[in-house]
Amino acid sequence: MTRTLRRSGWVLGLAALLAALLLLTKLIQPGFGASGIESLVRAALPFAFATAALAVVVIAGGIDLSVASMMAVASVTAAVLMESAGEAATVPVVLLVLLVGIAMGAINGALVVWTRLPDIVVTLAMLFVWEGVALLILQAPGGAATPWLRQLIVGPFPIPGLPEGATAFLPKSLVVLVFCLALVWLPLRRSRLGLSIYAIGSDPTAAFRSGVAIGPTRIAAYGIAGLLAALGGLSLTLSTGIGEPIPGPYLLAAVAAVVLGGVALTGGRGGLLGPILAVLILRVVRLILTLLSVDPNVTTIIEGTIMAVVVMLGGLLAMRERRA
């Protein structure tokens, strides 16, 4: 049906745009190839997780401004523990960090439910709180990451039986990203909890009438966002090798990618694939600007402008829809 096509049309369009941009990159720099893609995806990893985290909350009709701060907490927790506990404890540390992420998200969600304040106010306050927690754990960038864990996101993903030339274009980081998101999202998307998350974002009244428990669902959505943010923090530590207590520019990039990725800021609509493609698109744009030897600061301006324009267009579209 055309409707189904139209629904996935946005994602297909994003994929086409990404392909075109990659082609453009290749034209600008003929040497751009497997290693270029590898470093591109690796750099995009924290952005992708931040975006996925935000997307889940936005689908549930909320917004989480503390995503970047939660990533910072996860990043420093991982770096500090990995440095002190040694290689043997790596797996428990990773699990612990993920639990911390879920807990942070659930706290955000519980506060939203309990205080009855708008999501945006609660998570703005929690942005400061998590930032402070990260600073308390680690005053300045430091700590370390387990080397073998770091190797998990570096280089191509070898598939036995295939020549290296063929697997070179499949970076490990992409596999990690897809694996983690699929593990969290696919079972969820089909479950009643997943449906409930869409339902409360789309129409809380109708959801209530269909028997959805609004409060717990909201907390669960924030908890999942916390988990994804923790994955983002981990990937940050893995790619830099240290813990970073000051949150990076992930929040705004995530908002832009979520909107560009077809998730309505009013909730209930969209998925994870679109936002992830949008993250990659924004990263490729940055790469192209760098290749064109545009001043990196101008790149920041252009990126900021793209984000602002995307958000403003999103607002205008939402308004038009409301009028119609």
Binding site: R192, Y198, A199, D203, A206, R209, S210, G211, G268
Partner: peptide, 21 residues
């Protein structure tokens, strides 16, 4: 059956059925 439709607009019909069991 309420006056205003109570299916979730952003879910497809099958998901709506599952949501309401």
């Amino acid at each position: 059956v309420y006056q205003e439709p109570s299916l979730i607009r952003d879910l497809d019909v099958a998901d709506n059925l599952r949501l309401g069991r």
